[in-house]
Design a protein around this nucleic acid. Structure first.
Lengths: 240, 240
DNA sequence: CGAGGTTTTGAGAAATGTCAACTAGTGTGG
DNA sequence: CCACACTAGTTGACATTTCTCAAAACCTCG
């Protein structure tokens, strides 16, 4: 069987890629061992601290990157400084807009993140060679489109209370890439300011709604960031 | 030269496709004459009136469709009935979520529209055969993602006045698929209720903001739908 | 011309934003 | 290891925006 053969011939697979999330669920899963080996020659693993800028709006892109750990915040800024977070990326998403000379968003490490940098030409060469890879990239784009549209409903039609509940639910269901089940305990990867920019609310309104959820027993909070959700269904009910 | 040859051999191209927008700027441009001919055998042109439902959320999809004329409204509805328009499609967009068994949005003709229906299996067969076609479909998905993210900024961070101005600007720049320049006179393809659902506002707020733009001389309105924008730069300024 | 639906306008209510003060974490240097 | 300083988060009072409900005006179409 193919899958067994693959495991037996694990030595074909670059060491760094062997346990890599991107190979199992991310775009590298589309590559055969030779392609993976060729790609691994030009990739580079880097760790970024929370707050570091990864990609600036309207700046030329030199690299794509697989998100291996942590959360990346994608945002757009109006001339007068108003900011909107337009997406979050979790492992094993591919970071960077394919087939564009420059980014249309800015990307920032929301938490500490590990990235696998892929030089732009390396990925684009592979994309022309592998229809399977291009297909996976398209599927990610379609998934991000679905997520963006879901979020538009939250931004346009939900109350502040529903927005905050929706955000917490989103994090619970996405924070752990290896786990299919939502998490009941997690660290918030975003500051209150970031949450506000994601939800189209002020920092104060976010804080008040979190306090309310806490008072109502829907969530527990330890320190500022550590959240426990005793009953996910109850949180889900608050999402509108 | 390829392009000249193509024009000389126009007889290879199905009659209905010859003047079709989708062949020039849409996804059919990726097909060679044989593929186009094969596809044309199973496509069907239909006209839909404003308000007709084209695709229901969570319903199985049997067809894709090229939008040839008019405006299609994509929307999502919350359990309690709150609605959010998550996108508008203009000619020559492809309607329908590729590689999904069911739609995640509902689609409705916002104005009278002409569609070229493509049976799901026909398009999906072609997609596996033509990397060029899949590439165009991906580019449309990426463009829609960019548009969705732009709109998230409008939904999350703009005032009601800026939202309405942004909407009018969007229509002015997209209503005519053959024209690169924004239009200064056009028919609004959406009712006030639809505009409200697109902007996350009530019908009354939309109306008030339109009245304000009219009073300020930024736009002129004849009847309920016919809009003239004497100075697009002035409208652009109101978009925030 | 009239009926039905759509749009506009007004007045008051509710939600969210703003500004300011206060509190609680977090990290650093003695 | 503790104390201090700094940043992030919370809470309160008030302002502003947007929503809600109601009525009137306006189109569109038969």
């Amino acid at each position: 069987m193919q899958t067994v053969r693959k495991d037996i011939h694990n030595s074909d697979i670059p060491v760094l890629c062997q346990s890599c999330e991107a190979r199992h669920q991310g775009i590298c899963g589309a590559l055969n061992p030779e392609q993976l080996l060729a790609l691994a020659k030009s990739t580079r693993r880097v760790r970024k601290d929370a707050g570091e800028e990864l990609l600036a709006d309207a700046m030329p892109i030199s690299s794509y990157a697989n998100v291996l750990r942590g959360v990346v915040k994608l945002s757009k800024v109006l001339e007068d400084g108003r900011q909107q977070v337009v997406g979050l990326q979790f492992a094993p998403d591919l970071l960077g807009r394919p087939f564009a000379a420059e980014s249309r968003v800015s990307a920032e490490a929301a938490s500490e993140v590990d990235l696998c940098l892929i030089p732009k030409p390396a990925l684009e060469t592979l994309l022309t060679q592998s229809a399977a890879l291009e297909h996976l990239v398209m599927l990610q784009a379609l998934r991000e489109l679905d997520e963006a549209r879901d979020w538009m409903v939250t931004l346009g039609r939900k109350s502040a209370a529903e927005k905050v509940a929706s955000f917490l639910y989103l994090i619970a269901t996405h924070i752990d890439p290896t786990e299919v089940e939502p998490e009941t305990r997690f660290e918030l990867p975003l500051t209150r300011a970031d949450i506000g920019d994601f939800l189209g609310l002020t920092i104060e309104t976010v804080s008040r709604q979190i306090s309310r959820l806490k008072a109502d027993g829907v969530i527990e909070i330890l320190g500022n960031r550590h959240v426990t959700v005793p009953d996910l269904a109850r949180l889900r009910l608050r999402c509108g």
